[in-house]
Design a binder for these strands. Structure first.
Lengths: 353, 353
DNA sequence: CTGGATTACATAAACGATTGTGTAATTTAT
DNA sequence: ATAAATTACACAATCGTTTATGTAATCCAG
């Protein structure tokens, strides 16, 4: 059991510490530490010696010790509402990849769309001494209070996708408005004249912006806004079915639907097919998120890609900038990603009207 | 900047330490530490006092310090091949939920289906002092060497889904063989007499077992094995298309296909539809994984559900058992989850033959 | 009423790296 | 040749917990 009684450090026993290296080389731990971190006060010859021995003994620094001393670890905390579907797993994938490249590990937390969980997650991450926190807000987060503690501690904070508007924060977002605008315009260009919209909860920036883009497009075609054509919901598949029913019951039903989410537009498609209404000939459809299934349905669904991977990478990049720009205190920045419209069969009128 | 010049601890400044509590109460840090961890040597009155003040000052223990001292953190490392599709995100979701309930955070690593990455992940996690490692093997992992270091350090190790067979390890797996057996039998019961199989890489337990289940079912119907009907591949959508073409080119094509993965069966479906071959009337189809899209295609695809969430939870449970059974050294256990067959249109012959 | 258990707490040494301060030795400037 | 600067390293405190090892005080049995 006794592992410290050896003259020359052997590879045999567990973790090699800086003390081991120091003893072996007959220098102080300071020298070893500074040699490893390329400190100016260490001579090139000594540095070489240390590096070589470190490699030879396969020295692995104890992250915890460093974290304790420095008050910061090599961990990045990520808070997402949930880990399902296509979007969040992909963003997390992007984050993980970029973070690891920069020498960080990521801790995943879910808020389960609940601000109370979100608060707990913050606590957890803070006393895990994370180097930074990346977060996409839960659905019912409406204030900023629990994040102030993070800022007060000087822990870099970056939001992505779902953010609190108005507040001056670091964030990576998609240009949802532009995506919605392009999509709606596309429907209009295909000949639609009454385009309906499945809208999400309006306190969330993403859904508000998508609705705004929809309105922009209508205006650009000098079309009037008909509030009857906007259906607000949580955008589930079931609500897509219900919404479509509601639209069909209108005296003057739409000839196109743009949904702020793919599940709901899928619901609409299923309902239309069950009623024998042709897509896109009778009603054209387009969604948002470019979920995997959009390329599988018949007809395939037009949708907006959210650049999940890029968003993850950009979020980490922004975090890194914050880490490096340590001095500058109020360095706030927003990165806006451009969405990409994938036009598929569900919106392609070939020469209608 | 100076934060330690206060007689009574104020909530104002950052993290409250045990030393703060001790000073405030006029006891030693030992007492505080032990009171918080419910040590027998601390009187109930003192315990109460400490707990109360801790709550009042919102004391949050510094995980890093504890981890450093104890040599173990409250972190669980998870290594998965990738984070996409339905399976791994869902398992991770299950792991995350269960782990958090037990007071652990999870660190996610991807091996990108590469054993070299897997090795690096192990290193990363080990010197992050994780309390345990949960891993689903990369596609090209064929030996156990890099895991021996983990065991040597006494870090609990649990495999899930993709494991190395033969080795005596702790693992949570699906009964793939049973799932495949049931599915193939189902096809046979529906009247199929020539059932083909899209098989995956045979060195992976999951694909080997699925093939075995397929063979079991054939035998249970006294049907001969026709090697022509087994197509080996990586099971992508494209390979599903190609595989189906190959099968159709046979002098005596199959009347059913059971694939060890959903993507490939989707490819098969697409090809069949493009050729006007009816599913399930002419050829019945069934897949594996119960991906989201299986309920969306037309016809909907029969598939086997892998109990992703349960697998995640079971993996954490097994890990916890290992932690608690600290004394018992060679405590190895395998948990086998029962798959669930979801029968959908693609395999339902109504009275064929 | 004495000796051994039990209760309730304190002292201080870890854990492994980082870093402000100190100090020789060497180099450069004057 | 001497003061000043620079180079190259060591000492020791520190981060916040945990824990082995005391050590008083209280308690019960004999």
């Amino acid at each position: 059991m006794n592992s410290r009684n050896k003259k020359t450090a052997e590879v045999s026993d567990g973790p090699v510490s800086m003390a081991d290296l120091a003893k072996e080389l007959g220098v102080s731990m300071t020298t070893v530490s500074r040699a490893l971190s390329d400190h100016y006060s260490i001579g090139p010859a000594t540095k070489q010696k240390v590096l070589k021995l470190a490699k030879k003994l396969n020295y692995q620094p104890n992250q915890m010790a460093a974290a304790l001393r420095k008050g910061k670890s090599k961990l990045i905390g990520v808070i997402v509402p949930y880990i399902e579907g296509r979007f969040f797993p992909s963003v997390v994938h992007g984050i993980e990849t970029a973070a690891r490249k920069a020498g960080f590990s990521v801790i995943i937390c879910q808020s389960n769309e609940d601000v109370a969980h979100e608060r707990k997650n913050i606590e957890t991450l803070l006393n895990a001494q994370v180097a930074g926190i990346l977060v996409s807000l839960s659905r019912n987060t409406r204030d900023f209070k629990h994040f102030e503690k993070v800022q007060k501690r000087g822990v870099p904070l970056v939001f992505f996708d779902r953010i609190l508007e108005g507040d001056n924060v670091n964030a990576v977002v998609l240009n949802d408005r532009e995506g919605a605008y392009q999509t709606t315009r596309h429907l209009l260009e295909q000949g639609c004249r009454r385009v309906a919209h499945f809208a999400g909860l309006q306190h969330l920036n993403i859904y508000k912006n998508r609705r705004q883009g929809y309105l922009d497009a209508l205006r650009s075609f000098d079309l009037p806004l008909d509030e009857e054509l906007i259906i607000y919901s949580d955008m589930t598949l079931e609500q897509g079915v219900a919404g479509m029913k509601q639209l069909l019951a209108l005296p003057n039903p739409p000839d196109g639907v743009f949904a702020a989410g793919d599940s709901s537009i899928l619901g609409a498609l299923q309902l239309l097919k069950s009623r024998g209404i042709r897509v896109p000939q009778d009603i054209a459809l387009a969604g948002f998120s470019n979920e995997g299934f959009t390329a599988i349905t018949e007809p395939m669904l037009t949708s907006v890609d959210q650049r999940c991977e890029e968003m993850g990478q950009a979020t980490v990049r922004l975090f890194m900038e914050l880490v490096e720009a340590k001095g500058t205190p109020f360095y706030q920045r927003q990165v806006v990603l451009q969405p990409q419209l994938f036009i598929r069969e569900s919106s392609l009128h070939s020469g209608k009207r």
